[in-house]
Nucleic acid binder design. Sequence first.
DNA 1: GGCCTAACCTAGGCAGTCTATGTAGTCCTT
DNA 2: AAGGACTACATAGACTGCCTAGGTTAGGCC
Lengths: 116, 116
Amino acid sequence: MGGVRAGNLYGTLELLILKGLELHGPLHGVAVADHIAARSNGLFKIEEGSLYPALHRLQGKGHVAWEWMKTEEGKRAKYYELTKAGRRALKKEMGSWIANTRAMLSLLDLAPEEVQ
Amino acid sequence: MGGVRAGNLYGTLELLILKGLELHGPLHGVAVADHIAARSNGLFKIEEGSLYPALHRLQGKGHVAWEWMKTEEGKRAKYYELTKAGRRALKKEMGSWIANTRAMLSLLDLAPEEVQ
DNA sequence: GGCCTAACCTAGGCAGTCTATGTAGTCCTT
DNA sequence: AAGGACTACATAGACTGCCTAGGTTAGGCC
């Protein structure tokens, strides 16, 4: 069903991952996706085929770092953490998301309060 | 320069066109793109290679209808207009854009007023 | 007529997500 | 300790939507 196609998530997955790591501290991949699904009330379901490539891109850019750790159930998992550069990127991407959304609100003739 | 890739416009072009037609009444293709650029303060520049296929998709779905008319400078142009079905689609897509944006605000830990 | 411009059109490319499938490590049961 | 189940990680290829880069056509103007 592609939960994502329907909406304006396209192009914002890396931003959501960075923000999730900021909010929660180190998380492994599946936990990041769970966080996004939960906090969006199930609206955004990130598939593994989207998630892992995005994490690898972020790591390639130096925005996250990872290490093997154990989950609470004792399974090993890659725990990702924000780097300094990652925090900068997060700040920047937040700014441009806000600018774009402001433009969308203007185009759609909506006041911010109407997005409640 | 891609203005669009960077942001959360991806997937919302048809919505923006429908809304533009609602706000302005019949417009030809270039005027739709001009409207979007102007109202977004130049942030969203719709390229012709995006615009015309989108208009054709909308027409194929019966959301817009067109007829040849003359511009103010006397050139002929296809003036597009919302159909009944187009108005329904607009309403529906507005609703899901708002729902998605609400989810994004939650994920990004932002209050609507912060998008000012 | 010849030139310029506005408006329209489209094939092919690219980026980001999804589908489908596979692998490795850990626990649990017997 | 072997087998099975489950969790987390991984990736190739498909698909979608926008862009790039080329065009065509019609009208105004000299």
